[in-house]
Design a protein around this nucleic acid. Structure first.
Length: 952
RNA sequence: GCCGGAGUGGUGGAAUUGGUAGACACGCUGGAUUCAAAAUCCAGUGCCUUCGGGCGUGUGGGUUCGAGUCCCACCUUCGGUACCA
């Protein structure tokens, strides 16, 4: 009987489901192990071949752990709220709830096909009201807590009130961006509004003004993703940065703990480095510069207070609140024009801009030590949310300041003598202070301390810790997300919805298009005013809300009394292994850690960190196929060209238009192109281009209303192929379905693993899949012959067969533990190729091999297992095999013999040979004289069991 | 710009701790089988070569008896950059 996956795979999947092999209960008799995948966003394009890469790896690991006696939780769910469903709804009129439900259904089906050991009864979906009830509740808890810096823990607002009423603001050391100074009496005398204002300065969820990408033309806020070159991706309309009052989470309160917690985690150093850099803790000074003719001061943060005497100008972010006031009449026009220009740019564009831009305000600050006047500028390289949004510029010691000073012809004062450090760069903290008054002669390190001391004496500055990380903007002016559990009363005061009234369900509407500058929910009058005397918050939460705690819900998905029950969380504790994409390195992984620490502080979870070990899977990339649209005229017929034509005419005249990969011939190759047929498909897919002509090298064609009007013979339009993200928005998603129906699930699983290391990204390609399929057939025929007879004999296998098997068992066990699944597949191949030479295979080889491959190819293993005489009804309940060293003994070792590190020959020596035996053998090699070529041997290096090197 | 990753035959990749570079596959070439093809099986396959050997892990330096692996500089490319998820 041939290996035919179609005959066995569906059968076993159904069997496993019917018998509940993968049901997980909280079983205290076994050690627990929690394997988590980053749950997918259920995109309309379906599961693509990139998703399973991590899922297969985690499934293999989870299955092997289970066979090793652990009680393994390996759940799956959906990150179901998000922008694409809403965009899809705006385009098609299909409600996000409906499209998301359908997409989840498709995902469940596709995931089911992959043979994972998920316990679907634990599924979690972030858009399910039973789930987001608790997302909302956690938000209310964040609102009801502040952060106490002395106990390093969240503290309830009730306690804060009590403490302030007893002893005033000095009672507690709370994390805040503002200054709180009031006595107990003053607190009591405050109006409720004034009290609320003070509390808002410390709450972990609070409101403040933030900037959004605003597109007037579309009447909506846009995601960064939807903005290209300062224009909306859809329609190409201008986008500006618009201020708006929004909810924020005070993640900065947890910055130190998020930093310290990294030390305890089994994550890659690179990932920890990314989080560390994102948090960006820096120690420096806060310094107040006076402003000529004004009472108020300009606060700046610097890590280099030692360089104060080199500060020759100040730079503010264009959004800085003092800009308006400080601008002189002469400069107003220029300043306004500059601000307008900058507000059209995204932060990335501002930072990436190498060109130096800026504008003087026509105002001066006063140097806090020298009393000299210092001119004030605004420039895009200073960002509002970093530090105080203002810097003192020290052109002699900062590269960007230096470039700015040169462009605007500002003085550059050298204040550090680095002549003792010839290799030092401008920004290195080494050298002796000069031209710096009382600091002269000090080292940089001493000067930093001395300058802070001086500033503190003068009352114009103090030591300060600053974080690059900013509080998390938690408001989205959209529909498809969790509604805030927030009511505002007639006075504008904020009230959280009580737990008994949660969830605040997302109201159903068919009108989810943007409503001017508000969330679509703002238009639902009945819902907004549902609670008498109150209006609801009409923004919704971002997708990161639901994904910040979903891993806890899997532990106890049905609980209606708490996000997660104490019994469940005490048993499952935390995630032992988390596998997911590196693209989540900072955002999701930092927010989830933040929420987890907050939940720890409030007694909901027993651990400080959610994810003990983390593996980043690489991306399976797609190929983005594109053609070029001539931007110079928007009259019909529009003109499309190939990349080569666009380059000749000047690439800036063209817009890159992605083409659905299904239309492209020779997809992914250098010669990829659109045939006449592909062109027709393109025309039908993008009807807005109605009438267009296309030009490629030596080819042209004209299309009108989907019909080919004219074309050169053998027409083809060359498309540009670029490797990149596989994404619905790039029209290059490849689904696993076709591959599975052709080769079977086990083959697909093995092939994805065989592609390479899971951390590595690579473009999708099915070129090598035949090799894996051939292997599975060979493996099968070790056990079952052509007419379906079970071939395994009762006799013991020969030592050679046992050696092959145990080498494989050893290798696979080792490689699973280091998450090297591609080499596991190779090991299976090597073993199988070797066993084909054996004239008989006994049960002593067959049984461990079938169990060994079970986590990788669960269906095949289960089918073969049924032929074994065993009490275990499923291979997946059997033990995982361990190797026995007695079968692995080698008689001889082949040593490479090198001259000066270059291999010259191989010599075979007894495995037990000692250092001297080996050297003697080397020195007596018959060809040695020829290799020496008259030179003498200086040294012989022998590494037993490794190599021999003769140095001449 | 900044932070992080990757770069090895025609292709995917292996080399786990500084010790035989190219395991295992794909592809290709030749052969067997076949009326023929598919499938299958066997052999070969880094590049150059005067057949002695020489050169080879993105580029250029360095450390070492020995470097794909460590160090320095650079190039290319991918991910993130706070509203894609």
């Amino acid at each position: 009987m041939q290996y035919t996956p179609a005959d066995i795979e569906d059968k076993w999947r159904k069997h496993w489901q019917d018998t509940g092999v993968y049901r997980v209960t909280d079983d205290p008799s076994k050690p627990k192990y929690y394997v988590l995948d980053m749950f997918p966003y259920p995109s309309g394009a379906g599961l693509h071949v990139g998703h399973p890469l991590g899922y297969i790896a985690s499934d293999i690991y989870a299955r092997s752990k289970r066979m090793k006696g652990y009680n393994v939780l390996h759940p799956m769910g959906f990150d179901a709220f998000g922008l694409p469903a809403e965009e899809y709804a705006i385009q098609t009129g299909i409600h996000p709830a409906d499209s998301t439900r359908d997409n989840m259904e498709r995902y469940r089906e596709q995931l089911g096909q992959l043979g994972f050991m998920y316990d679907w009864s634990r599924e979690v979906s972030t858009c399910d009201p039973d789930y987001y009830k608790w997302t909302q509740w956690i938000f209310t808890q964040l609102y009801e807590h502040a952060y106490d810096l002395s106990s390093h823990s969240a503290i309830s607002i009730a306690k804060v009130r009590e403490a302030w009423a007893t002893s005033g603001s000095v009672a507690l050391q709370l994390h805040t961006d503002d200054t709180l100074e009031f006595s107990a009496q003053e607190w009591k005398d405050f109006s409720p509004e004034e009290q609320a204002e003070r509390l808002s300065m410390v709450r972990l969820a609070y409101r403040k003004v933030g900037y959004v990408n605003w597109c007037d033309e579309l009447g909506t806020v846009l995601a960064n993703d939807q903005v290209k070159d300062g224009l909306s991706e859809r329609g190409g309309h201008p986008v500006i940065q618009k201020p708006m009052t929004q909810w924020y989470l005070r993640i900065t309160a947890y910055a130190d703990r998020l930093l310290a917690g990294l030390e305890t985690l089994d994550w890659s150093d690179s990932l920890k480095a990314m989080q560390r850099n994102w948090i960006g803790k820096s120690v420096g000074a806060s310094i107040h510069f006076g402003l000529s003719g004004r009472e108020e001061t300009l606060e700046i943060f610097t890590t280099r207070p030692d360089t104060l005497y080199g500060a020759t100008f100040m730079v503010l972010a264009p959004e800085h609140e003092l800009v308006e006031e400080l601008t002189s009449e002469d400069q107003r026009e220029a300043v306004d024009a500059y601000i307008q220009q900058i507000m059209a740019k995204s932060e990335i564009e501002r930072m990436a801009n190498k060109e130096v831009t800026g504008c003087p305000l026509g105002a001066t600050a006063i140097h806090p030590l020298s009393g000299e006047p210092v001119p004030i500028y605004i420039a895009e390289y200073v960002l509002k949310d970093y530090g105080t949004g203002a810097i003192m510029a020290v052109p002699s010691r900062d590269d960007r300041d230096h470039a700015f000073a040169q462009k605007f012809d500002l003085p550059i004062i050298e204040i550090i003598d680095q002549s003792d450090y010839p290799d030092a760069e401008r920004e290195d903290k080494v050298g002796k202070m000069i031209h710096s008054d009382f600091l002269d002669g000090m080292s940089v390190k001493d000067a930093i301390a001395a300058s802070i001391k001086k500033l503190e004496e003068l009352g114009t500055g103090r030591k300060q810790v600053n974080y690059r990380m900013r509080d998390a903007n938690f408001s989205r002016q959209r529909y498809w997300g969790e509604p805030f559990p927030v009511l505002y009363d007639d006075q504008g005061d904020t009230h959280m919805v009580e737990l008994s009234d949660l969830p605040v369900k997302l109201p159903r509407t068919e009108d989810f298009k943007p409503a001017s500058d508000k969330s679509p929910l703002a238009r639902l009058d009945d819902w907004v005013h549902e609670v008498p005397g109150h209006t609801r918050e009409t923004d919704v939460m971002p997708a990161v809300a639901g994904s910040s705690w979903y891993y806890l819900r899997y532990m106890d998905p049905q609980n209606d009394q708490a996000p997660v029950g104490q019994d469940a969380v005490q048993y499952w504790q935390d995630v032992d292994l988390y596998i997911g994409g590196a693209e989540h390195a900072v955002a999701h992984l930092l927010y989830a850690r933040f929420w987890h620490k907050f939940l720890y502080d409030t007694g909901i979870v027993p651990t400080q960190e959610p994810f003990k070990k983390l593996i980043n899977q690489g991306m399976i990339q797609g190929v983005i196929e594109a053609i070029f649209l001539d931007k110079r005229s928007d009259e019909l017929p529009r003109r499309f060209v190939s990349s080569t034509v666009a380059e000749v005419e000047g690439i800036s005249h063209f817009a890159r238009i992605p083409v659905h990969v299904d239309f492209v011939s020779d997809y992914g190759s250098e010669e990829s192109y659109l045939s006449v047929e592909g062109l027709k498909q393109f025309a039908a897919w993008r009807p807005e281009y109605g009438h267009f002509i296309v030009e490629s090298d030596g080819h042209s064609a004209e299309i009108q209303h989907g019909k080919l009007v004219a074309a050169t013979p053998d027409f083809r339009l060359a498309t540009l192929s670029e490797v990149g993200k596989m994404s619905k928005s790039l029209f290059n998603v490849i689904n696993p379905d076709d591959v599975i129906s052709r080769y079977g699930t086990d083959c697909f699983r093995l092939y994805e693993m065989f592609l390479g290391p899971i951390e590595q990204s690579k473009p999708w390609d099915t070129k090598g899949i035949d090799g894996v399929y051939k292997f599975l057939r060979k493996f099968w025929t070790l056990f079952i012959d052509k007419d379906g007879t079970w071939k395994i004999s009762d006799q013991t296998s020969r030592p050679t067969a046992l050696k092959l098997a145990h080498e494989c068992i050893k290798k696979v066990n080792e490689d699973i533990e280091r998450f090297s699944f591609n080499t596991c597949v190779s090991a299976f191949m090597i073993c199988t190729n070797g066993l084909r030479e054996e004239d008989r295979i006994g049960i002593d080889v067959a049984s461990p091999l079938i169990r060994l491959i079970a986590p990788f190819a669960p269906h095949l293993a289960e089918e073969l297992w049924q032929h074994m005489e065993t009490s275990m009804d499923s291979v997946h309940k059997a033990d995982y095999p361990q190797h026995d060293d007695q079968y692995l003994k080698e008689q001889t070792i082949t040593y490479p013999l090198c001259i000066n590190g270059k291999k010259k020959a191989l010599i075979e020596l007894d495995a037990e040979a000692n250092h001297e035996d080996i050297e003697t053998a080397a020195r007596s090699h018959e060809d040695l004289e020829r290799w020496l070529d008259g030179k003498t041997i200086k040294k012989v290096i022998v590494v037993p069991k490794r190599m021999i090197n003769i140095v001449i």
